Amino acid sequence: MCEHLLVSLSCYIWVRTQRIVEFNEMEQIKHRTVEVNGIKMHVAEKGEGPVVLFLHGFPELWYSWRHQILSLSSLGYRAVAPDLRGYGDTEAPPSISSYNCFHIVGDLVALIDSLGVQQVFLVAHDWGAIIGWYLCMFRPDKVKAYVCLSVPLLRRDPNIRTVDGMRALYGDDYYVCRFQKPGEMEAQMAEVGTEYVLKNILTTRNPGPPILPKGRFQFNPEMPNTLPSWLTEEDLAYYVSKFEKTGFTGPLNYYRNFNLNWELTAPWTGGQIKVPVKYITGELDMVYNSLNLKEYIHGGGFKQDVPNLEQVIVQKGVAHFNNQEAAEEIDNYIYDFINKF
């Protein structure tokens, strides 16, 4: 009995010590505001050396890269993670079209220039990954190598607009389709509250395509009562504090530009991405398991479109938010790849 209590106490002390160490390291992350492309952008950064630029997804912030910032900065890199436009402490232009691919890539090119470097190592997840592909498409001269999490290149089909194609596959209740009408999803989210929305999305482990029936917001119908080990109450509280100030309109506007982006990128139809790429996803990732992407990733289409795709990694038992759920593993994958260049 005493031995069991001693072991439990030792584990508790170790966990608390680790938390204190990480908290102290987090306090060393520098925060500043940069003028880019007509907006003020919040940037978190730490370290010295070659720049690693981290792009977050939905519904996240620079904070979703907290583990990677600490890890890569300790290995001789300058880790830079902005809040993308419409998120967190970065400005949120009011018009929907201000969130199209040209505007957001314009933000990133200006940010890279402001860092005083010609090129960066790019690491991106979810919507950040989609923007990452656009950056590699429009300005490959700015990207030395790209570590892409979750969302592979979404090959442009010249015969059908993006959202129309998703609707044809999964119907009107597919989450991207449900996000299209301005104000509608914001109202549903307001009914359940910011904390519920974030917890509901961040804890999802359903590998199927996300379906959002009309009515109560329910992205993840099997939401657990407790948070997963990789997401603490403090982590969730940080996300909630920022989204309560900004709301979700800016982030949702990214989805509302899918069809516009399809129109704008017509000149790049059939073009290849020549940047060196490493792709990492979780086997339970909802994107990996939707939109016929498994066949595209493993059947040769991905490699055809991205000839310098060096590796595809599927993490066993890991879901969508792999940069947080399997942080140490992701840290190692990033370092092993970018260290070659």
Rank of each mutant, 00 (worst) to 15 (best):
I69T: 13
Y279K: 12
I96Y: 03
N257Y: 01
Y255R: 02
E45D: 12
L70H: 06
S73M: 08
E184P: 04
Y12T: 11
L252G: 07
Y279Q: 03
Y196L: 02
P251W: 03
H320I: 06
F102K: 12
I334L: 11
G282K: 11
T246R: 15
Q272L: 14
C177N: 13
Y255M: 12
K181A: 15
S98Q: 09
I280L: 15
D141V: 07
K245W: 09
Y239D: 06
G270R: 00
V109R: 00
R156V: 10
P221T: 11
F102T: 01
A79K: 06
I39A: 04
V197T: 06
L227A: 09
L198G: 02
P213I: 08
E295M: 04
Y170W: 10
I96F: 03
G171E: 09
A124H: 06
K303N: 04
N206H: 09
A92P: 05
V197E: 06
V287S: 05
P267L: 09
I297K: 07
K214W: 01
S71F: 15
N261V: 04
N289P: 08
Q311G: 09
G208V: 07
G270N: 09
E195N: 00
E310C: 10
E45P: 04
W230K: 14
V21F: 13
K294R: 14
E328F: 12
N259H: 07
A190L: 07
P82N: 03
T249I: 04
E234T: 09
V240M: 11
V123C: 15
R32F: 11
G193T: 02
L75P: 00
S98L: 02
D107A: 01
V176T: 05
I338V: 15
K181G: 05
K142R: 15
G57N: 07
N225Y: 04
Q188H: 06
T204I: 13
V318D: 08
L115V: 13
V192S: 03
Y239S: 01
L135F: 02
S64V: 10
V52Q: 05
W65P: 03
P251N: 04
P251C: 07
V52T: 12
H125P: 01
G317F: 03
V163P: 00
E234I: 05
V163K: 00
Y134W: 12
P213E: 05
I104A: 02
L5Q: 14
K142Y: 01
G271E: 12
Y63L: 12
V314K: 07
Q180H: 09
Y12E: 11
L260I: 08
H103S: 14
N289T: 06
M189V: 04
L260K: 13
G38L: 04
Q315C: 15
Y134M: 05
Q68A: 08
G193E: 08
G250N: 06
Q324S: 14
L231V: 05
Y238I: 10
A237Q: 08
G282D: 09
P93W: 11
S74M: 10
Y296I: 08
L53R: 02
A124P: 04
V123W: 00
P221V: 11
P50F: 05
N206E: 11
I112R: 01
V275W: 01
L55Q: 02
F121W: 08
V36M: 04
L260H: 11
Q304R: 15
D113T: 14
T204E: 10
A81W: 05
Q304P: 00
P182C: 11
D107C: 07
A81C: 05
V7L: 14
L291W: 03
I29A: 08
F243I: 08
S8Y: 12
A168I: 01
T33M: 07
D113P: 02
M166N: 06
